[in-house]
Design a binder for these strands. Structure first.
Length: 546
RNA sequence: GCCCUCGUAGCUCAGUCGGAUAGAGCGACCGCCUCCUAAGCGGUAGGCCGCAGGUUCGAUUCCUGCCGAGGGCGCCA
């Protein structure tokens, strides 16, 4: 059993002994920021004394009294502090247990959870219209969505990645007309597409093809290539048209009708979304008989609920207004709104050397995602996109992110991993045979830098769980950066190999290094960033080979 | 006007499911390579956590109002 659970159990027992009714109380155990407050701390006395109408410090001392007699594992000291916190100071052996657990679990199982219980989740992201290339903003949603999918996988869910394609409707028609016009040197329609890519693609288009179909495939290929450059692969490319052909859209309408969630007015069919908190009702079928964007999308979500228990959508900030109506439609169809989680990603502003970049150097048009990846590389692009909370708008500086310098945290983290491999390689070259961890004396690991690494590794499972629940992979990015920092300090403070290092210490530190490797590999994998085993800087300090 | 997100160090941003002395990177300044990769490490300086109220033992965190920035408010997608 891990320390956290055994401490919680001990506290529960103590409270029971004091005949406190625990049924409503969750034991809150935390790792205090200040080391003087011990390794673990609880505020139960503060929380409960209020209900019991007692003095918190008096109550805390009663609880402490009982706890001391139970003497939980690794316990060194129990103290009351501040207004009534109970602080636990543990022997370092608790962290040596963590080391054992990390090594035992390895990269496949550390920070893995079973809470998903193989429940099916569909993460839908990007879903850009097939009317032109992906741009830098799509990159954020792409990296975010893929990382969220990885997080759900690590929490024991069965995950599918969906890309919804709006392959019919007004925009597609306009796009096809624009391509055709450009190809035959005619005037592009008023609301048509005009980017530089239209010229390029029109030039590629063979003369005797249907511009609609050809343009559709061309755009899809472009999307797929850009995403593959980021190492992102979808399980389903879900076509809007297929739902017309299958009759699914009409079925959805029928279901909504029988749920009495629609009405007709002015020759159009409306969703009564105001029943579910929307500020106005929404049109599903226009008076000209054409579907709005909403109805096929509702149908698509209906389909997803047939395939999965939980849906996660990643939408751009320009779609936030659709959350309420989509939840309304799902409620009307009998689904629980909380089973459709919608994450909104705020804007990305591209910059170069602090100046906003509106247009591509190459095409003079909007900067394509493919260009961003080409300029900065997949690892740096992913790490950078995942560095911030998606609730914040992002300034993405191409100049900075492309630089292989210390401003760039992705290399800082990867370098920690490269250093680990360097140590392992050196130890092999020195002919050191690491004994099994059971035969290794871990009690020599008492340097603050060594213990800090173990504390951080202990936190990773919680971090993974929280990142998943909050749909917030940037927490993992930040953890990996902090963890790399701890490793670099350790690297500086504690030599693993050397004539003046005893073999006992070397062996124990080699296992510590192995555990650190597990932490880095797990976190980088959740971000979709590679973990190079070597990184060398060239003479100019601008290139790296890994 | 209504809705969403943001406002924290000079800059870019974490932290916020109420907790003890608010953090990191960059930039500035001062140090550290006879040593497993200096893409590294250590230190100093830098804060009315937008403003004003409220809730309570305790608020950067929750609530209300205001100010500022961005985005959205179509029988477009």
């Amino acid at each position: 059993m891990d320390v956290r659970s055994s401490l919680i159990e001990a506290i529960q027992k103590a409270l029971q002994k004091l005949t406190v009714d625990l049924s409503f109380e969750e034991i809150h155990l935390e790792r205090p920021a200040n080391p003087e407050h011990g390794d673990w701390s609880t505020n139960v006395a503060l929380a409960i004394s209020k209900k019991l109408n007692r003095n918190p410090r008096d109550f805390a001392s009663e609880v402490t009294e009982v706890l001391i007699h139970q003497s939980p594992d690794h316990m060194k000291k129990i103290e009351i502090a501040g207004p009534g916190f109970i602080n636990f100071k543990l022997e370092n052996s608790w962290l040596h247990d963590v080391l054992n657990q990390v090594v035992d679990a390895g990269t496949d199982n550390w920070a893995k959870h079973k809470i998903g219980n193989n429940k099916k989740v569909i993460v839908e992201f990007v879903s850009a219209n097939p009317t032109g290339p992906l741009h830098a903003g799509h990159g954020r949603g792409a990296c975010f969505g893929d990382s969220v999918a990885r997080l759900y996988q690590r929490c024991g869910y069965s995950v599918q990645r969906d890309f919804y394609i709006n392959d019919r409707g007004t925009q597609m028609k306009l796009y096809a007309e624009s391509l055709a016009a450009e190809a035959s040197d005619e005037k592009i329609p008023e609301d048509g597409y005009r980017g530089e890519y239209i010229k390029e693609w029109a030039a590629e288009m063979p003369p005797d093809v249907d511009p609609f179909e050809w343009g559709y495939q061309r755009a899809l290929r472009s999307h797929r290539e850009a995403l593959e450059a980021l190492n992102i692969y979808f399980d389903n490319w879900f076509s809007e048209r297929s739902m017309v052909a299958s009759g699914a859209i009409e079925e959805t309408l029928t279901d909504l009708r029988s749920a009495e969630a629609v009405f007709e007015s002015d020759g159009a069919v409306w969703l009564r979304s105001t029943n579910w908190g929307d500020d106005k009702d929404r049109v599903l079928v226009k008076s000209d008989g054409e579907y709005t964007y909403l109805l096929p999308d509702v149908t698509y979500h209906r389909d997803k609920f047939k395939r999965a228990d939980l849906l996660v959508n990643v939408w751009g900030a320009d779609h936030h207004g659709y959350i309420t109506r989509m939840h309304a439609a799902m409620s009307a169809l009998g689904h629980k709104p909380e089973d459709l989680k919608i994450a909104i990603t705020q804007m990305v502003r591209l910059q170069r050397d602090g100046q906003e970049v509106k247009l591509s150097k190459r095409t003079g048009d909007i900067v394509e995602l493919a260009e961003v990846i080409e300029e900065v590389g997949s690892d740096a692009a992913r790490f950078t996109y995942l560095l911030l909370s998606v609730d914040s708008s992002q300034n993405f500086d191409l100049e900075l992110v492309a630089q292989q310098v210390n401003e760039n945290p992705v290399f800082y983290v990867q370098y920690a991993h490269a250093r680990i491999h360097s140590i392992m390689k050196k130890s092999q070259e020195a002919g050191i045979e690491r004994p099994s961890i059971a035969e290794t004396d871990l009690s020599v690991l008492n340097h603050p830098s060594e213990l800090a690494i173990l504390r951080s590794l202990q936190e990773l499972p919680d971090m993974v769980l929280r990142s998943t629940q909050e749909v917030a992979p940037h927490r993992i990015t930040n953890w990996s950066r902090d963890f790399a920092s701890l490793f670099h300090s350790f690297y500086h403070d504690c030599r693993v190999l050397g004539e003046d290092i005893s073999i006992t210490v070397t062996e124990a530190r080699l296992w510590l290094v192995e555990a650190a490797r597990v932490g880095l590999v797990v976190s980088l994998d959740l971000l979709g960033v590679s973990a190079p085993t070597e990184m060398w800087r060239n003479e100019e300090g601008e290139e790296f080979h890994g």
